[in-house]
Amino acid sequence: MEKNFKREISALDEIFSFVDDFVTESRIDDAVAFSIRLAVEELFTNFVRHNTGGLDHIAISLKRDSNQLLIQLKDFQVEPFDMTKVKSVDVDLPLEKRKAGELGIHLVKSIVDKLSYEYSKRTLCVTAIKNLEEQDV
């Protein structure tokens, strides 16, 4: 399934409905569905907040094969920004040194098995892959 969404935070409601449709059609377990929602929200909000330039929409694609889920977001006509290189939250840092804003990417890295970045012809593409166990579907 693939769909374009407005480059604005208010698009999240529509995005969650899109994810719900995918989860239902693909008969995905609730716990994995929770991870998909989380990954999509964190990646989308990161695109909206940090990618500069860009068309008025961001493309989200969700695919499932027998043992993997693929979550892909594409942003067109933007400057390069590799979120996968953003330093992970140091969970050992004392409270006063922790930053709330670093949590999103840390979360995505924690819940998916692979997060990759491509940039070509001013199109930025981030792909998250989550491996499925037999009990997840």
């Binding site: 929770f34 929200e41 964190e42 409270l95 922790r98 804003g101 949590l103 840390h106 979360l107």
Partner: peptide, 16 residues
């Protein structure tokens, strides 16, 4: 039923 980093960030932001 669901909390993303935006929600968790509020707890961290105010706890100090």
């Amino acid at each position: 039923t669901y909390i993303s980093s935006a929600g968790w960030g509020i707890f961290i932001g105010e706890i100090k």
